[in-house]
């Protein structure tokens, strides 16, 4: 009982999703600690390409194909994951903590009565992992106490696994599928002109100091110039200046872009928790004592009115010179 099973995610075209590669690395590290073998599981329909890719990443890959597995729903996927784990002497089941992993893994854990550790950022022992809590304000070590332990893996904390010599590939049986009254209807891919807040390279956020929604227009110009996504503090979304799905923070979205520009945001703890993983942080605030400056790499004391239009002009000049 010491093998590690990593559940891989596939794209609608049947290829392996890159998001799964960090989980494979987690699986390798955990299998080494446990003295067991890394096994990858590919589920779906028409996922031959994903299986072939997975095969190059681990000593053993199991692929299970069935028309009814075309769309990943927890109700049908979880029992299969559980069965494969039982048949293969698995002590740890993992997947990347994407919407897919976060949805399906706990359901599998419940079926196994297994302890689960979410959002793993480091492997400490065969069933002991490091994870953040309280929006990154606490780093914890959590041990799974059950014969099988389930873990979801934070994508940004493990390097992507690299292809090597192909391992063994075996086909498994889907068995009888039962959706338990749930069915997939359709996927609606967002076609926003701007990148997704959680994935953007640059995020420009505005806070209460923007005063009203229409003033976010100037931030939009800056955002688009930088090819970024718009964000806001909870103070701004609660005041109805911008929709709540722009909220960056512990109660909104947690972001970690290369460049985060906080404009007219004082830096409440819950906001800082949502953005302090950013690589470079710029704070622009008229109050030089605002807490946001304590986490900012570059701080500029000034109002948004007096700085953002000038910043737009400077960035335009820079972009013109670069092109």
């Amino acid at each position: 009982m010491s093998n590690v099973l990593i559940v891989c995610e596939t794209t609608p075209e049947g290829a392996l999703r890159k998001a799964s590669l960090p989980a494979v690395t987690f699986g390798k590290q955990t299998a080494e600690k446990a003295g067991g073998k890394l096994i990858l599981l590919v589920l779906g329909s028409g996922v031959g390409a994903a299986a072939a890719e997975a095969q190059k990443l681990a000593p053993k890959t199991i692929v299970i194909e069935h028309d009814g597995l075309k769309n990943a729903i927890a109700e049908t996927y979880a029992p299969i994951i559980v069965r494969v784990a039982k048949e293969n002497d698995v002590s740890v089941i993992g997947a990347t903590a994407t919407a897919f992993g976060k949805d399906i893994l706990p359901r599998a854990a419940a079926l196994l009565e297994a302890g689960m550790v979410s959002d793993v950022i480091g492997v400490v022992g065969p069933k002991t992992f490091r994870r953040p809590m309280l929006a990154g304000n606490a780093l914890c070590v959590v041990e799974g106490l059950t014969p099988v332990v389930v873990a979801s893996v934070r994508q940004t904390e493990f390097p992507a696994a690299e292809a090597g010599a192909p391992g063994e590939l075996s086909k498994g049986d889907a068995g009888a599928l039962d959706g338990k009254g749930a069915s997939f209807v359709r996927a609606e891919t967002t076609k926003s002109a701007r990148p997704d807040l959680a994935e953007a390279r640059v995020v420009v956020s505005g806070g209460r100091g923007m005063k009203e929604g229409k003033n976010f227009g100037v931030l939009e110009t800056l955002t688009d110039l930088l090819g970024g996504a718009m964000g806001a503090s909870r103070a701004a979304t609660d005041a109805g200046m911008v929709p709540s799905d722009l909220q960056v923070g512990q109660t909104g979205k947690v972001v970690a872009p290369e460049l985060y520009i906080a404009v007219a945001i004082s830096g409440a703890i819950q906001h800082l928790a949502g953005m302090k993983g950013s690589k470079t942080i710029v704070a622009i605030n008229k109050d030089g004592e605002a807490p946001i400056f304590q986490v900012a790499d570059y701080g500029l004391v000034g109002t948004w009115e007096s700085t953002i239009p000038a910043l737009i002009e400077e960035v335009k000049k820079l972009k013109a010179a670069q092109s």
């Binding site: 302890g115 002991t128 304000n137 606490a138 070590v141 942080i281 900012a296 570059y298 701080g299």
Partner: peptide, 23 residues
């Protein structure tokens, strides 16, 4: 219990950077 919280500690803090004078 099926999991045990072994320890919790504060993460390494982020250092404050510099203030710039203008845009």
């Amino acid at each position: 219990p099926v999991t045990k919280l072994v320890s919790a500690e504060p993460p390494a803090g982020r250092k404050a950077g510099v203030k710039v004078k203008d845009v």
